[in-house]
């Protein structure tokens, strides 16, 4: 399992710098927002947490369709299916590798973008913390979408369409927790704990669903 994790990490860092492209996409999306809403700093700092979260969500979806597709193309997916390790565990490890290689850089880059959006330190910290806790859920949900669309030749767009509706709860609680940290009356802990619960829930449901879809997508 550790070997698989390391192999996946190595591949995704080496193969065309997928992580770097994700971070670049994230920065571009966030940088475009001020052009759309105008350079009003007060407005930007108010909507900042939401913008950073949406940007991270879109960027996290970007590389998802490759999660199982490369394995399918070179045939190693069949090997994974035939292994004695349970497939659910394999999928979980692959998700973790994908998260470490592609999504963690987004979390690390988010404080910088928070500065661009004129957010104060507490808000930046809150966004980073909620992203750190919430983004694994995005990867787990996305794994189901990627597994469902694995046999489609052009599944990338379809994965986003299928996955985005399911990501809505994560987005809601992530953003509301970030806002709760800044605005005084709202407590920070309840939405944050719900976000944690969502991540753990999808950590179970995501790999199980993805494994089921992978078994059925074969012939």
């Amino acid at each position: 399992m550790t070997a698989l994790l390391l192999r996946d990490l190595k591949l995704s860092i080496r193969a065309g710098g997928g992580a770097l492209i994700g971070v670049l996409f994230f920065m571009t999306v966030v940088a475009v927002i001020p052009f759309g809403v105008g350079p009003d700093l007060n407005l930007l700092s108010r909507i900042g947490p939401a913008i950073v979260w949406i940007g991270a969500l879109l960027a996290a979806l970007l590389g998802l369709d490759r999660l199982f597709q490369t394995e399918r193309e070179d045939g190693s997916l069949d090997l994974l299916l035939m292994q004695e390790h349970p497939l659910v565990l394999v999928v979980l490890v692959k998700c973790l590798a994908h998260w470490l290689a592609n999504v963690l850089p987004l979390v690390i880059a988010s404080p910088l973008l928070g500065l661009f959006m004129n957010m104060d330190e507490v808000a930046i910290g809150a966004v980073m913390l909620t992203l750190l806790v919430g983004s694994p859920a995005l990867t787990f949900i996305g794994a189901v979408g990627a597994a469902v669309a694995v046999t489609l030749p052009r599944g990338g767009l379809l994965v986003s369409i299928l996955v985005l509706p399911l990501c809505v709860p994560v987005l809601i609680f992530g953003v509301s927790a970030s806002y709760a940290a800044v605005e005084d009356p709202a407590p920070f802990l309840p939405p944050f704990l719900i976000l944690t619960a969502i991540t753990m829930f999808f950590a179970v449901l995501g790999p199980v669903g993805a494994a089921l879809a992978l078994r059925n997508a074969g012939d």
Partner: peptide, 8 residues
């Protein structure tokens, strides 16, 4: 495959 998606 869509059955999996429906259940999720």
């Amino acid at each position: 495959v869509s059955a999996v998606l429906i259940l999720v």
